[in-house]
Write a protein that binds this DNA or RNA. Structure first.
Lengths: 208, 208
DNA sequence: CGGTCCCTCAGCCTTTTGGCTGATACGGCT
DNA sequence: AGCCGTATCAGCCAAAAGGCTGAGGGACCG
């Protein structure tokens, strides 16, 4: 039986080495290449056509993970893409999933979890770390807590530290409207000050 | 000649595996133990007395890296402690250094850089990644912009979204004092609202 | 011992923010 | 046609935050 070919994508050499070492213990898996950036990943997918691509989302300057996923998908190849990252931000999860990722693992996952995810991925099954799954679940149960596009836009600017007046100017709306949006955002995030909203947004929504 | 004994401390198994694999290629180094938390690290230092402790600063709940460094120092042992982390935040660098760290490496460092740092550390030399060095340099040139310990502490809580009243309660100081500290922090960060301070802190100081 | 930081606190005043209520308008869905 | 979600705006009021000045005590250092 032929082994599962894997491409590792992460900008940190230690992480790649670690994954390579871990996967090396599994007789049915083989790391065929490593990339340290999105562009490199794209190239190596073309060259090696790996069965699975395991990749980090945050990768220094240049193409980010989400973009890389989309581009790999566009190659029409049948690679299963697994996200392997440190943070479980709502925004990242959603974007990764609808960019075509097959699974979402956190870096503190147990080895068995990683192996299972890779094997599952080639069989077309989705696997994700429990914290990730529960976040998705959370969103499905409480659609009321999902920000509207306009609110997300405002929140994003909010994390830059702008005042209501500045927010209004940037979005071409009155300060009154800004306040209305903010009130809705606060309610959805479960906070009651802009400071807490920023903190929550950056930590939970991954807006950095 | 006896090999340099190393203790790895990182909450991510992949990172530990990666480091172990990398250090395994060096004949003069030997990983004698791995810890996934600060507490565990402390215990293993006692047991193995490694020559070098390579450790991450961010380690889930419980004791953080800085605290762990201090505790290891307090054991009076002569371990050389190397910080090996993802972010080069000003605050972390300063705190790590004056907690007794011998060097400060970023996770995207080249293997040779890591090896050199470990060898240097046992010989009492400090080694740090170029970005880290330049930050320290920057701080030496503009000492006016360096936050005092108390200010850093306050800023850290600020990024959790607390109000002045809450900050005061947490730090056992009056709201007036909180406002004084905030004013100083704003001046040093070059902002004039708490929202902007939080944004700057998280992006520039790496406080998340 | 004087100078310099750092941390602490107070009062006063202005600006900003947040909570509330209510209103208009547009698009889509039923 | 009605309903609902979204986006827009207004006014009012209370609370929070920010700017300013001044000030005392403790630690460290030359």
């Amino acid at each position: 039986m032929s082994r599962i070919t894997v491409l590792l994508v992460d900008d940190h050499l230690v992480v790649r080495s670690g994954l390579r070492a871990l996967l090396g213990t599994q007789p049915d898996m083989e790391v065929v290449a490593e990339a340290s950036s999105g562009g490199e990943a794209l190239e190596l997918v073309r060259v090696h056509s790996p069965a699975v691509v395991v990749m980090d989302l945050a990768m220094g300057p240049g193409m980010d993970g989400i973009e890389a996923i989309r581009r790999i998908r566009d190659l029409d190849s049948r690679q299963a893409i697994l996200v392997f990252t440190t943070y479980d931000s709502d925004a990242d999860i959603v974007r990764a999933v609808d960019s075509g990722a097959m699974g979402y693992l956190l870096k503190d996952a147990a080895p068995e979890e990683i192996f299972a995810a890779i094997r599952g991925a080639v069989q077309g099954r989705s696997v994700m770390s429990p914290p990730v799954a529960s976040r998705l679940f959370q969103q499905l149960r409480n659609p009321d807590e999902v920000l509207t596009p306009r609110e997300a836009e405002l929140l994003s600017l909010l994390t830059e530290g702008l005042s209501n007046r500045e927010l209004g100017r940037r979005l071409f709306i009155s300060e009154a409207t800004v306040k209305t949006h903010l009130a809705h955002i606060y309610a959805k995030l479960g906070v009651d000050t802009r400071a807490a909203a920023i903190a929550t947004a950056i930590r939970r929504e991954g807006m950095r």
